[in-house]
Structure formats: C-alpha cells, structure tokens
Amino acid sequence: MTFDHISVIGFAGPGMDTDTTPLRDPTPDSTPERLIARIAESRDRDAYALLFTRFAPKLKAFVMGQGLSAQEAEDLAQDAMLNVWRKAHLFDPAKATAVTWIYSIARNLRIDAARKAKRVRDLPDDLWQGEGEKPADQEMIDHQSAQSISVLIGALPPDQQTVLKMSFYEDLSHGDIAKALSLPLGTVKSRLRLALARLKTGLSAPGGRA
C-alpha cells in the first residue's frame, strides 16, 4: 500500500488513466455532486451505479449503528438511494454537499419508517432542496464541504467529539448520553453546545468553506 500511495502522489494526477479508484479520488465527472447532476440531466444509470456502490454500504452501516437490523438497514439504504434517483433534479450543490443531502434523505426515510405503523402523513422536511429558499438561510453553512466539517469534527476536544458522535451514530437523546456516560445532563448539553459553536465558527471562518 505504501508503494501505491507513493505512486499516486508521484505520478497520478486527477483524471489520469492510472487512477483506478475514481470514487476515492474523484475525477471531476465522478464526484458525488457530479454523479447526481448526471442523473438529473440524463437519467445516467452508470452514474447511479457508481453512487449506489459508494453510498449504499455507508448508509447501511450508519443506520445499523443506530439500531436497525441488517435487513432493515439494507432496505433503508435501497430506499434512500431510490429517492436520490427520483429527486436528483432537486439537489442543489450550492446549498449542500451530496453526502449531506443523501444523509438528509435517509434521515427522513428513517423517521417516516418509524412512524409508518401509525399511518402518519407529514410534510417532508427537506431543508436542502431547490425550492422555497429564503435568503436568510444562506448565512452560515452554504457551500460547506463534508470534508471541512469532518476536519473540524476531528479537531474537537475528545469529550466533545464523543458526545457529538454518540448523538449521530447511536441516535441518542441528550438524556440518553448523560446516562450512558454517567454525566450530568448539563455537562452533555454544554459539550454539545461547545462542539456546535466550534463547528459554526470553523465553517464561517475564511477558508472554512470549500
């Protein structure tokens, strides 16, 4: 692996033929954002297959971590990706990265599935779609990249990272986290508050956006 790493750095530029892992080192035409655009523009099935191969396993892993069975998680990943196909025309890369948009689709599906037994009908909570935009929304996290948020999360103090990751990966309430870590609720809340504040500051700082 060391050799591959060196060879990539040394000789292979983006888009070169030697680039055999286009999904990990995307050429301009196969970034997730571009793949979604290709689906929207021309119902591009190859683009969909690439997107599916890249994100369905992650979606499956993510919701399994939140407590779904392997089968439920597989179904949810399938449904989420189907929604990506159907809603591709609504994706606006100026507002969200592809992975953020995909996460929000999966989150809404997961919530709907949990309520399905109760025959609920609710408004889709699509914060990221092209319509209904209000300028004031634009203030903070436009154009942010998942990459830069990931870096910012990695730079948080470990205590803050822990509560943040437990929130998302394990789908826990603040009270659940307090119990799990034997911490006062106020401590959990303040750690999360500090973490969110740092992320916001980082995203609005020059260079904090991609």
């Binding site: 994100f55 992650k58 993510f62 995909i102 996460y103 990221w128």
Partner: peptide
C-alpha cells in the same frame, strides 16, 4: 444535516 453527512462519509 451537514454534521450527519460528514459522519456518514
């Protein structure tokens, strides 16, 4: 959502 996306990635 942006945090969730980054963590999903």
């Amino acid at each position: 959502d942006a945090i969730g996306g980054a963590l999903l990635e």
